[in-house]
Simulated scan of single mutants.
Amino acid sequence: MADKSSAGPSAGFDEEFSRLFLEAGWQRPIKPAEALRRWEDFAEDCLAGFPWDVDDYNNDLTLRTRLAEILPALEAEGHGAARHLLEKMEAADSRAREVLTCESFPDFPEDRWWLRRTPAYASRKFCADFRETYGIEMNSRSLFDDDLDEMIRLNSTCLSIPEVLIHVRDEGLYVSARSGLLFRSFREAFPDVRRMRKLVSGWISGDVGDSELRSGFIQH
């Protein structure tokens, strides 16, 4: 069979990839680049101390399982792009393996190591939720928690919430690396200001400026 990569960079690979994901039960179309980015983000999140929910964690594991099923099939069909994606995915695997070291679910096969193993450490909330769901303990250690504690500390020194958020962004703290992390840290650090979430979300996305953020909090 001819290598379909010779017909162009994708040669139907993206479409076939997305179709197989949908057939496997994925809820919406997903392209290879997005799937790879999500798994790379998962690996980096684990290294930093997983900051998301148990459902988010399980969704990422399901993504990795689907990749393990779909990419070899696409490669066998002659999609040369599948091998390139597998190589990049394996690089992210090596990062995730540094943290997923605890053999917590040995009933899964060895080649599904991401399902067998759990992180050696993670954020406080994730640890508590994982223990409640599965009865498995892990160490509480996370850059997310470090930044969360710093945000609360700064606010306790009379720095307003807008100034705390601007400080976090300007100083390049870990939670400022992605918009979802920054919004999550705001929600957890300041749970009593629900009415300001839309304003903060707009500021994070760039639709609201610093001055609007400040004035919005003053008005409320």
Rank of each mutant, 00 (worst) to 15 (best):
E150N: 07
L159G: 02
F144W: 05
L148C: 02
I70W: 00
A120M: 04
E44L: 06
M151G: 01
D129Q: 10
L61M: 14
D129L: 07
V99N: 14
T157N: 15
L154Q: 00
N139S: 10
E69Q: 12
H79L: 06
W52V: 05
I166T: 05
F144A: 04
T118Y: 04
R141A: 15
V164W: 00
W52C: 07
F130I: 11
A48D: 15
G135Y: 00
N58H: 07
V168S: 04
L143V: 03
L159I: 04
P109W: 09
W39N: 02
G80E: 10
E87Y: 07
E90D: 13
W113R: 05
F42S: 02
N59G: 13
V99I: 15
D145M: 04
I70Q: 00
N58G: 08
H79Y: 15
C127K: 02
E40T: 10
A68F: 11
V99Q: 10
F108K: 08
P162W: 01
P72H: 00
R141N: 12
R141Q: 13
L86S: 09
T157L: 15
E98P: 02
M89T: 13
N59L: 11
Y134A: 14
A73P: 00
R37V: 10
A92K: 04
V164H: 00
I166K: 04
V168G: 03
D53H: 12
E103F: 03
K88V: 06
R38W: 10
F144K: 05
